[in-house]
Amino acid sequence: MKSAFVSSFAHSAAGRLLLSTAAFITLAAAFFLLIGRSPWEMLSLLAQAAVGDGFALTESLVRATPILLCALATALPARLGLISVGAEGQLYFGALVGTGFVLSATAVAGPLQLPSMLLAGMAGGAAWALVPTLLRTRLQINETISTLLINYVAALLVTWVVYGPWKNPASQGWPATAEFPENARLATYFDSRVHAGLWIGMAIAVVAHMILTRTRWGLGLDVLRSNPRAGVLAGLRFDRHALAVMLLGGALAGLAGIAETSTVQGRLQASFSNGAGFSGFLVAWLARNHCLRIVPMAFLVGALLAAGDGMQMLAQVPSSVTLVAQGLLFVAVLGTNGMLDRGAR
């Protein structure tokens, strides 16, 4: 009886979180020992750098925002069984299209400029998702490979425009576009860089969760993912659903890109994403594609990454320590869940 209670607790959401956290702390401590530092000191410095004061906290939120949107962009196709690694490229292309819109369409000014820029960014992200989707539905080309490879094309396109045609002549050689006008920036809060993209992302997470779990459409995704042949019996078409989830996912990643570019950085620059698309992929997997669980996971990973700079100063270690920590987090969560699921079988 007692062991049954322990086992059912371990399999509950809270139990999984507790065990994963314990595994992460163990792994991280081992890593810090390995590099010759005191684990306790380093872990507390890490926590301090991530959420220690108001500035650290808001910077963590800023970092979490694009990761949150990119995680949703990964989770949506995953509900159909499609493993998209394309959020990174969609984010870049969304930023590119959104920026291009602002640079060219000077006619759209005033209150319309912001929403139309966001829509352009979303359209860009969706367009970048379209190619791998068509390759998959028409030619059965694996979407994981094509989304991954096409990422680099998008990132290099951005590099090209900021070094070439869109380079701001006034920036004295710095490879970036002109600054975004005030009208084309999202609202910011707390006297920090935290912007409305965070609320938008959280709202989208809630809405997406409702749609996926409560509606006929979400049920159809479940059926097609579980068994495409059963989907045919239900009169569902895989191709249409694939197009919908991939384009919606692309739009969310595109939104992340244009929000980050316009509001946080203020101009389009090369390599601006800091791997938010890939971190989003990790977050989606950590949250097992559950849209609500993505929110805290995105914050956790965002905080870890944001702590990198602080760690450099506080502990005199390279900021890449936090990248190692992110990897350890991934191993801890997936390893714990994997072992629990294996035991359950």
């Binding site: 509606t215 006929r216 979400g218 059926v223 579980s226 068994n227 059963a230 019996l233 239900a234």
Partner: peptide, 23 residues
């Protein structure tokens, strides 16, 4: 059938398209 889906969902497969939007 969808192996990892519930029996209830599997039983409603045929009428999935005529279910109300909010299931």
């Amino acid at each position: 059938v969808g192996p990892d889906l519930s029996l209830a969902v599997n039983l409603s497969l045929r009428c999935l398209r005529s279910l109300p939007w909010m299931v």
